[in-house]
Design a protein around this nucleic acid. Structure first.
Lengths: 236, 236
DNA sequence: AACATAATTTACAGATTTTAAAAAATATAT
DNA sequence: ATATATTTTTTAAAATCTGTAAATTATGTT
């Protein structure tokens, strides 16, 4: 799943550096120079995690987070130059999940981002399913894909897909009729530049074998010559 | 119904933050800096749930709870910096209690508050009505797990599970068909980041030995390649 | 129809992941 | 204090998945 991260930091250099690192890891990044701006971004976009410098002009990080916590509960990672400042956020750690003192290693930050996102998602999934909310099901014609049970059904019959096959089908199911080039699919799932596209074509073939009645005449995953593949939208 | 929650925590920052967040969720909040003060508040007001830090001056959380439990049975959520401290409260935990290790996510705390209030209310109504089913029993096919007696039965026959095995099975039984990665299971039960996942795989294997007819061909706990494990939903 | 280009299929080696078994470290109980 | 049970680590084997290359087939163009 694609995550959006808000970087709230007044020093342009640090802000840019963090942004670049995050983007290289496949995250979408929003930037803000101060607390007020950060608050606005959060209202305007869906943010999954925020990295917030404590010392900022206009509106400092602590005030911002107090405000954010009134309506949102995504994880927040605090940045701070002095460890004394950390005493102040100690109390906020209820709302914020983690902190780092400057200077910090980018690796460390990335690890914290990953860990906190995972933890947050864990809480979410456990909460939802206990309330028996069967979210995460995509249907298309005779196809049915469930992202929580990781099951795929073809006309009600269970199909055994490998992880990569599942991810590819998931991508198609979420965007029916949209054409994806092999390179696009590769980037979206492998999170890196595609060197060759043979890999994708083979996976497509395996997928068809499992979900198509007749793989030679696919009705779901269709080729768009010279462009890529798309999932045909079926009737409900 | 309006609930009143007592926050017993010596660090002003944390206390304030928890208060703000609870209030934003519509709860009435009472504050106390130590166990003695908390005890007084409980005597003076009607408290439905308490959040209690274990380490506190004047009167620590454990002494306080021992005292509280002589007269009250509302749920208590313990806060603790070290997981070792939690061993001490083990004996104190009544049916309606819970705990969190610092630092924790606000979401998590709120979720626990909600869950424990709900659970407590359920126990109350059960007590008032005739001695109905003592909730906390999960069934799935020939499996039966009882969270109050900590018993597990396979086709009616008692299986002797270790604590960790029980916790893992409990997690699966509460969320049948949902896929959990080894890291997720670890996090959910150990309450900390997983460094390696071997531990989980071994526990899974031991579990299978005890609940599966044929561990080589498990019908309950099934592997989902590259992703994790899930509990297959059986017929009732 | 012949050609160039794109897509499909097949096969397989190498990489990952899971299972298994056993030994070491911890915790628990007697 | 000692024995027993539980949890974790280690190691090896088995199963499954993934990416690459090469051969085949299909599509569009001249």
């Amino acid at each position: 799943m694609e995550h959006t991260i808000l970087v709230c930091e007044d020093e342009p250099g640090i802000r840019e550096a963090i942004t670049i690192y995050l983007q290289s890891q496949g995250y979408s990044v929003l930037q803000a120079e101060n607390g007020a701006e950060g608050l606005q971004k959060i209202k305007d976009h869906e943010v999954h995690l925020a990295i917030v410098d404590i010392m900022m002009p206009v509106m400092d990080g602590i005030s911002m987070v107090v405000e954010v916590r009134k309506s949102y509960d995504f994880p927040i990672i605090f940045l701070s130059a002095k460890s004394e400042e950390l005493d102040k956020i100690n109390g906020l750690m209820v709302g914020a999940d983690d902190y780092l003192t400057k200077p910090f290693a980018s690796m460390e930050l990335m690890a914290r981002v990953r860990a906190n996102l995972r933890r947050y998602e864990q809480i979410l999934t456990l909460k939802n399913s206990s309330d028996a909310e069967p979210s995460g099901i995509y249907k298309n014609g005779g196809l049915e894909l469930n992202t929580t049970t990781k099951e795929v059904r073809v006309n009600g019959k269970l199909a055994h897909l490998t992880p990569k096959e599942f991810q590819i089908l998931e991508m198609f199911m979420k965007h029916p009729e949209q054409v994806f080039s092999a390179a696009q699919i590769y980037q979206s799932i492998w999170k890196e530049e595609a060197i060759s596209t043979e890999t994708i074509t083979v996976h497509i073939r395996k997928l068809r074998e499992k979900i198509e009645e007749n793989p030679k005449k696919p009705i779901y995953i269709q080729v768009v010559w010279g462009l890529g593949y798309k999932l045909r939208k079926g009737d409900e």
